[in-house]
Design a protein around this nucleic acid. Structure first.
Lengths: 345, 345
DNA sequence: CTGCAAATTGTTAACGTTAACAGCTGCCCG
DNA sequence: CGGGCAGCTGTTAACGTTAACAATTTGCAG
């Protein structure tokens, strides 16, 4: 009502006119250029605040050729791990003055990945983080040759793409060794889908720990990360516990993630087996609620926020110099011991 | 090696030159303008593919004044519900040709919210979805007067901001009525934090169902959504079960979310109470793993993907016509009955 | 054929910012 | 007191697209 010019957003020229300077001076104030008299700078700042002027990001991006936007491509974002990493990436990016454009994949096909990359490219992101725990996806990523610099998170290290990974292998060794140290002759294993790099790393770590300890390697059971598949594996473990002879029956099991461990626990309970007395169970991921499972679950906790920060650091570095040799960052997980693996009586 | 011009990305003018037309014709082909001869269109398309030309989004945004980007502000993204909604929003937006810029809040203060809005505004988003289940945050949102159109998800309906909400009240009524129908004299309740709108809705629904049935309203227990707080509430319930007289002791409890219900279950188990024989337990949220709790949990499932779609629809509508009266969409949840509330013997 | 409308194409001018360079002060030193 | 050199400010030209309008070609009726 007061003014009629409330229609369109103020531009740099508007600020300049009101402040009695050229638009270039306004630009200089905005970019903290040193050669601006203090009084001028103050005056311009004042007008900017008064008019609630906001620089037009499109105009800026057009001339600087930088969108200050990073893309993130993620699958399984409803799981605790990926969701945590996503939040970590966002915080780190925002702290560095970047916007995060998120794309969530519900299918891990090469087509879906290509579409996601294309979507981000169409908006001019400067780089992308791809959370592709899946081996085939990583392969696809390499074939596709993304139109902008890329880093992976949980994508393994055998690539000429830089990446951040949590050390699955070391984590799995830690749990397995912990179980062996409790006096178990061997440790059984429920795997994740083997084409997921995390599942593979955990599998290898488990196996190496057994080999190093000279322990026999029992038949492993395949799961798909879901509690349902853990439940099925648990039923099998219970059966094995009942029917195998004393020497070879399972007394300890390392389950590749906490969700599946939950299913295992339910199956064992239904079969009348006690945890940890009859069968010790350990998980992997460090879900906050794993402390409230029945019984509280021994697990491996990962620092997802740190992974997010490391991912952004790597990506920005990659954007600075795309030709530098790819660097990999590895983060160490932490063993959390709870009563599902208490010492044997 | 073959060509030296691999330096910068091709522009519309480059395409035009190669195709032997004006840049405007290229623009027309890109925007599917009808008045272009079929042969010309084909030729231009060919050159676009050949040069791998990609329109510059900044230049386009500058002239059209549309960034085709939507912002999403979310807290607690590591929880199943918010994470699912986020994924739903992203899919819906992408399908409509929009990019999703995500900002995750780890603190629900007005300052944090203002910073998030400012961050998105600085990148010129056309609108934003705010997932603010927290009452104070919603109030803050109203005070702040965002610089772009806003819709809320799970933000309640008593606002002049349009929003999508899942019907917490109805869901809570459904569980409570279900428990009453099993023959319980009354139903106890473990609440979420009361300043969360979802918690409040569930509380009100619970209370209304009891009132309508003429059942007494027992003292409710306060929780904070975490399994830990559910555990503490469970200990109290167990104590009440032991010490109160037959008429007033708890025999059924509706816990405001599945995570807390997990804690309740553990506490009851530790106290030697059987579920559902001694105490029936129901949750809310429909976590996939709630089926594998001990025992499998009766809960209320919500369609988060639908909520995401509805949110984007509402927002785009709002961007079209910001002055239209705010519309609210309500989605109905679904009761999932499992053995934690099996019929009384 | 001629002319006129419709279809197709081209030309020019924005959009709002930063970069490059030019100009204008005032001050210090010889 | 003149020259030069900072320090500050302004002017002009991009950046790559769409919008508005102008120009050209085509098709077809008269």
């Amino acid at each position: 009502m007061s003014e009629a010019a409330d229609r369109r957003a103020p531009t740099m020229a508007d600020v300049a006119k009101v402040a009695g300077v050229s638009h270039q001076t306004v630009s200089r104030v905005l970019s903290d250029h040193p050669n601006v008299r203090e009084s001028t700078r103050a005056r311009v700042r004042e007008v900017i605040a008064e008019l609630e002027y906001r620089p037009n990001p499109a105009a800026r991006a057009l001339v600087t050729k930088r969108s200050r936007t990073l893309g993130v491509i993620a699958a399984n974002t409803t799981l605790y791990g990926p969701a945590s990493i996503l939040a970590g990436l966002e915080h780190a990016a925002r702290a560095k003055g970047y916007l995060i454009a998120a794309v969530s994949l519900d299918e891990l096909s090469e087509t879906a990945l290509r579409k996601a990359l294309e979507h981000l490219a169409a908006w001019g992101v400067e780089g992308g983080v791809v959370m592709t725990p899946h081996e085939r996806t990583v392969a696809a990523l390499l074939r596709l040759a993304a139109p902008f610099p890329i880093v992976t998170v949980e994508g393994g290290h055998d690539l000429d793409v830089p990446g951040v990974a949590l050390d699955q292998y070391a984590g799995a060794r830690m749990v397995t060794e912990h179980l062996l140290s409790l006096g178990h002759a061997s440790v059984w294993h429920v795997t994740g889908p083997r084409e997921w790099l995390e599942a593979e790393g955990r599998f290898q770590g488990w196996r190496a720990a057994l080999d190093d300890a000279g322990a026999p390697v029992p038949q492993w059971l395949g799961g798909d990360w879901s509690a349902a598949s853990g439940y099925r594996a648990g039923q099998l473990l219970a059966a094995a516990h009942r029917s195998l002879d004393q020497a070879s029956k399972p007394t300890a099991v390392f389950v590749a993630n906490d969700h599946m461990a939950l299913g295992v626990l339910r199956a064992l309970r239904e079969a009348g087996l006690r945890v940890p007395e009859d069968l010790a169970v350990a998980g992997f991921d460090g879900l906050p609620e794993s402390e409230y499972f029945a019984p509280p679950l021994t697990t491996v906790r990962q620092d997802f926020a740190a992974a997010g920060r490391a991912g952004i650091d790597l990506l920005l570095q990659r954007i600075e110099d795309p030709s530098a040799t790819p660097v990999h960052t590895t983060l160490m997980p932490e063993l959390v011991i709870r009563s599902s693996t208490a010492a044997r009586p």
